[in-house]
Nucleic acid binder design. Structure first.
Length: 773
DNA sequence: CAGTGAGCGAGCTTCCGCTTGACTT
């Protein structure tokens, strides 16, 4: 039996530490929090000082029982959760849930997973910091009160099953407001003038320069080009300036998500999933962190690696400090555990993410890159304007040898690497001067990763919640992640060659979007509701302000429930007031009048989402309703679109003596025939689809089903053995059943199947909690 | 998985932050 029980948060950490501590210690993991407020009720006693009612989380019951037993048998229990607000609370919950005794419990913390760090932690134990625990409790209770009082209000006023919260609602607001900025942005154009000069005869490399001025008007650009005819072009200045570039700091969760998005095209969820694998196999340090700090050991390993691979002049040891708001720094930056391992075995995604982390970490400990920036100014004899050419030459590559951080916007003008040598006073001959109409670009839509970056800047959310927050607002359909095709537009180009000006009109595509976040009608409406009634909750500074109060609680300068009381009073009053005194918030808009019936036609959000309504709600005759298409939005819907929606279901005539109809359901347009549904393709327009196409769709689906069917039974047409995405399975009505290992699915008899279905062990599991439709 | 939207009334939905697997049709 072990004398000592050590409890950490993560099982991977537990395994490593156990190796350091020897046989007198058993090291276990709590897998994060073990207790929480009950999911099914508020679980905060408003009447009694906001006392939280905790329970052991369902999936932790077994674990807590096991830990309790181990703790009972141990002489000393060491609570070693992370040294931050949540970590302190985890220790306190463990203390309470395991029924630990104060004289048999010690709280320890360490920042590095090394033998010396652990040993030193064991030698310097402390008590649980109850003030820090109170700060966490305030955070937890505040989030619960906000989430569980605002959400039900949304169910009543907007639409069932919606949600609101301190983090998600601000995240949605960011996306909604960015879309508004894009809509309000006024595109203007101006003429950008560039020239290519020959330097040493026409064969040599040209010198590319840009005019220091842009002309908003076509006439101005043309007038300038005219002034260049027969003009002299003289170099009036050649300026060389040394500059340097410094490497980016090592990865935090947020910067890893951004770079993996920019360079590898990963979603934030995918980045975290791959990083988790790398962490569990011991290849990288912990991946949920807001710290850019590297341990002393890591600094030494990096230095050794750089010295041996590139030489000592590439080494520059740097200590980074975190500047982001609300950082708690319980961990190191994300780095390889062994800097000497430059590549790993694993999936392609794991290899690529590891490579990124390895390079970023190494570069952060390398010398600055030294560059020489050259700027050449060219005077024009017949004009006041000047051409400017600039170029950059790398004198010493430094960290650029391994890594350069990516950029979110691709607007940066390209710099020529190397400029041909010219002297002050030298005459240049223009090969070509081009004035091209260029358009301004509005703000960029968010990607998942750039949204995370914004959240981090605002101090909203934590490394462990960035990816889940994005998932939540996508799941609630407040926001969609989509590609949008670009549009084309024409622009004017004037060309001056051999003293002659020619002009032409060319076209370009713009506004093409890939995997960008767009607000939906629901997202826009919920945001509007919250903005109208609860602006303080979705204020960008709300989190920052409450964080200040949590800090005061952590320092023992304020009682946690005093803070909550001060918040809850006015908040709850506003909830009740809005509940009683506001009407349904449906975003109803009158589109026009139906020319056939003369009735009003509205667009609004109903119980099942955006819809059109023909006739007034309070009229004697019940209004007609129809849901919007997935591709339609309330804002852009026209009267004609709305009228078309009422033309469904539309009959397409008979096929095999049964009627075919086309309609639009929750999952898009479909054809219904003989009580079966057949989805139409994205390219089909339900308004014009004909019988011929419908029959084609029906037959294709039948063929596909036939291919997937292994066995059918005459006794029971609803029982089948099918071949699905995960291999063969048995389908009976709406339930699916696994086939026992070692059974040939093609040889299953009707009796076999009945036995499998009848076995209670194979009974279909209740749907996952997250699988709500 | 698909057709809904009145009104009645039952019962359900929901937060943020810590951690991993089990499981999918």
């Amino acid at each position: 039996m072990s004398k000592n029980l050590v409890i950490v948060e993560s099982p991977a950490k537990a395994k490593t530490i156990e190796g350091f501590l020897g046989k007198d210690y058993i090291v276990k993991s709590s897998f994060g929090h073990v207790r929480d407020l009950s999911k099914n009720q508020l679980s905060v006693d408003i009447e009694n000082g906001f006392e939280p009612q905790y329970e052991i989380t369902a999936d932790k019951k077994k674990l807590v029982a096991e830990l309790k037993k181990l703790a009972k048998d141990a002489e000393m229990v060491w609570l070693a959760s992370d040294e931050d607000r949540e970590g302190e609370a985890i220790s306190w919950h463990l203390f309470t849930a395991l029924g630990l005794k104060e004289d048999k419990t010690k709280r320890i913390v360490f920042h590095e997973i090394t033998k010396s760090a652990i040993t030193s932690a064991i030698e310097n134990p402390r008590k649980i910091d109850i003030n820090l625990v109170s700060a966490q409790q305030a955070r937890r209770v505040l989030d619960r009160l906000v989430g569980y009082e605002l959400s039900p209000l949304l169910w009543r006023k907007v639409k069932p099953s919606l949600s609101a919260g301190r983090v998600q609602s601000v995240t949605v607001r960011l996306v909604v407001e960015r879309e508004e900025e894009i809509k309000e942005f006024e595109v203007t154009s101006a003429y950008r003038v560039t020239a290519i000069f020959s330097v040493n005869g026409k064969s040599g490399p040209g010198l590319k320069a840009e005019l220091s001025e842009r002309f908003p008007k076509e006439e101005e650009a043309l007038a300038f080009l005219k002034s260049c005819i027969n003009a002299d072009f003289t170099v009036s200045a050649v300026e060389k300036k040394p500059t340097k570039k410094t490497p980016a700091a090592p990865f935090t969760t947020s910067t890893l998500q951004q770079e993996a998005s920019r360079k590898l095209g990963f979603s934030v969820g995918n980045t975290m999933r791959v990083a988790q694998h790398l962490y569990e196999s011991g290849k990288i340090t912990y991946m949920r962190t807001d710290s850019v700090n590297l341990s002393g050991l890591a600094l030494k390993l990096a230095k050794d690696e750089i010295t041996s691979s590139y030489g000592s002049k590439y080494v520059k040891t740097r200590n980074y400090t975190t500047k982001s708001k609300g950082a708690q720094e319980a961990h190191e930056a994300i780095r390889p555990t062994e800097m000497s391992v430059s590549s790993i075995t694993g999936t392609s995604e794991e290899k690529r993410l590891y490579d990124l982390i390895w390079k970023r970490t190494l570069a952060s400990q390398m010398a600055d890159a030294e560059l020489e920036k050259t700027t050449i100014t060219i005077d024009i004899s017949k004009s006041e304007y000047k051409f400017v050419a600039s170029g950059e030459v790398i004198v010493f590559d430094g960290f650029l040898k391994v890594y350069l951080e990516g950029n979110d916007d691709d607007t940066s003008e390209e710099n020529a690497d190397l400029l041909p040598p010219v002297k002050n006073g030298q005459q240049l001959n223009p090969v070509e001067i081009v004035a091209q109409q260029r358009f301004t670009r509005g703000p960029a839509r968010y990607t998942e990763a750039s949204l995370v970056k914004k959240l981090e800047e605002l101090g909203i959310g934590r490394p462990s919640t960035y990816a889940p927050t994005i998932s939540t607002i996508l799941k609630r359909e407040y926001v969609v992640k989509e590609d949008r095709p670009g549009q084309t537009r024409s622009f004017r180009v004037y060309n001056l060659v051999d003293d002659k000006i020619t002009d032409k009109t060319e076209t370009e595509t713009y506004g093409y979007e890939k995997s960008k976040l767009f607000p939906t009608d629901i997202g826009i409406l919920v945001n509007k509701f919250l903005f109208q009634y609860f602006e303080s909750i979705i204020d960008y500074n709300f989190t920052a302000n409450v964080e200040k109060e949590f800090d005061e609680i952590a320092e023992g300068r304020q009682q946690w429930n005093t803070m909550i009381r001060e918040f809850y009073g006015p908040f709850h009053k506003k909830i009740e007031d809005t509940n009683e005194n506001s009407a349904k918030f449906s975003g109803e808009k009158l589109l026009g009048i139906d020319p056939v019936s003369g009735k009003n036609l509205f667009v609004k959000v109903g119980r099942f989402g955006p819809m059109v309504q023909l006739g007034d709600t309070d009229s004697e005759e019940k209004p007609k309703f129809a849901g919007l298409n997935k591709t339609q939005t309330m804002e852009t819907l026209t009267l004609a679109d709305a009228l078309e929606l009422f033309s469904f279901p539309r009959s397409l005539g008979l096929f095999e003596e049964k009627e075919m109809t086309v309609a639009i359901g929750r999952f898009g347009p479909y054809v219904k025939h003989d009580a079966k549904f057949y989805s139409l393709a994205k390219t089909d327009d339900p308004a014009t689809v004909d019988a011929e196409r419908a029959i084609e769709v029906i037959i294709t689906k039948r063929e596909k089903e036939q291919q997937g069917t292994i066995v059918e039974f005459q006794q029971e047409p609803e029982l089948k053995v099918l071949n699905g995405r995960y291999g063969p399975y048995i389908k009976f009505k709406k339930d699916n059943f696994k086939i026992p290992k070692g059974t040939d699915p093609a040889k299953l008899t009707f009796e076999d199947c009945q036995r499998i279905i009848g076995n209670p062990e194979n009974a279909p599991k209740k749907a996952f909690k997250g699988k709500r439709k």
